[in-house]
Nucleic acid binder design. Structure first.
Length: 323
DNA sequence: GAAGCGTGGTA
DNA sequence: TTACCAAGCTT
């Protein structure tokens, strides 16, 4: 594969074409260009499995309220979870909170600048550690996210989709393609990621406007279909759905929500009475939960798992967000 | 290594 | 409308 050789001629390279496209087409996102390492870390956590359009407003509020790790670490967990809102996967919020605590205790309040130190923080895995080291500190790291995996699968391998899970071969390929120069590597990582997010998308890729369509192995192969069917995540009837509905109730409530309100034959009557003393949001959230028609064992299990995860606490017969 | 974990926009 | 999918991590 001559074009991806690190010693390829500069002018015509895939690298140059992606970098040029990135400079012209990159979105103007608030966590790009002069953002603090803390802001970049927060954005990376929020962006895990969550689209940019939903992250942006929450990130803006977040940074205005907690401009540094120390300010955030001092916030009560309940406020953290409320500020997280409906971003989803609320365990991320608690792990970020715990990470901020470690940053204050062990790193003097400054986001660490190495891959290894970042990887040791709760909620930070290989992707996020590499991304923060690269985008916040300009380090040369092998950043591999779902966008980059998909771009390389098409551009280099000629397949419609990457393997179901990250392979060692993919990491090796990404390492090979990474520019030697640190600054160039950072831009390359961001550029390939952006290309995957805007052009080489999962559903309907915009191959007509792709800067590297002429070098694309997938197009050259006639855009073959995926070799496997991605297995979707079940949702209806799952504990996840129930947990989400319960968390919506707890976020809206400013006082403990009586256990009776969650299940039991009297639940609907109790919820009705609660209308009088609870704000409308709590009543609406309870109504949504009741509309799921969850049987007691599953509701019990979901509540217990939320408590086990530290997302909820039970005291005085009522469930509430953790203090 | 597979399964579990939220949420809402889009095709 | 029903699935798929989004800058993954943890157990």
């Amino acid at each position: 594969m001559q074009w991806n050789c690190p010693s390829e001629p500069q002018g015509e390279s895939v690298h140059q074409q992606v970098l040029q496209w990135f400079r012209e087409s990159a979105r103007d996102l608030p966590w790009r260009g002069g953002c603090s390492p803390w802001g970049i870390l927060v954005s990376e956590i929020m962006l895990q499995q969550t689209p940019v359009v939903r992250v942006r407003p929450v990130w803006e509020e977040w940074m205005a309220r907690w401009p540094d790790p120390a300010a955030f670490a001092a916030a009560p967990q309940a406020e953290v979870l409320r500020a997280w809102g409906r971003l989803g996967y609320p365990r991320r919020a608690l792990r970020l909170h715990a990470a901020a605590g470690v940053i204050v205790e062990k790193h003097d309040g400054a986001v660490p600048d190495t891959f290894e130190e970042l990887l040791a923080l709760p909620g930070i895995g290989t992707y996020t550690a590499a991304a923060v080291a690269a985008f916040a500190f300009g380090r040369r790291e092998t950043v591999v996210d779902t966008n980059i995996r998909r771009v390389f699968a098409r551009l280099v391998i000629g397949q419609a989709l990457p393997a179901p899970s990250l392979t060692a071969a993919e990491m090796a390929l990404a390492k090979e393609l990474l520019p030697e120069d640190a600054a160039a590597s950072v831009e390359w990582n961001a550029g390939v990621m952006e290309l995957g997010a805007l052009v080489c998308t999962a559903r309907s890729p915009q191959c007509g406007i792709c800067p590297v369509r002429r070098e694309c192995a997938w197009i050259a192969a006639g855009q073959p279909e995926p070799s496997y069917v991605p297995k979707g995540q079940p949702w209806a009837g799952t504990d996840r759905q129930v947990r989400g509905a319960v968390m919506a109730v707890l976020r809206a409530a400013e006082s403990p929500v009586h256990a009776e309100l969650f299940w039991g034959p009297a639940s609907e009557l109790a919820a009705l009475k609660e209308h009088l003393s609870h704000p409308g949001e709590v009543a609406d959230a309870l109504k949504s939960l009741h509309n799921l028609n969850v049987h007691a064992p599953q509701l019990q299990r979901s509540l217990a798992s939320l408590v086990a995860d530290g997302l909820a606490q039970l005291s005085d017969g009522g469930y509430h967000l953790p203090h």
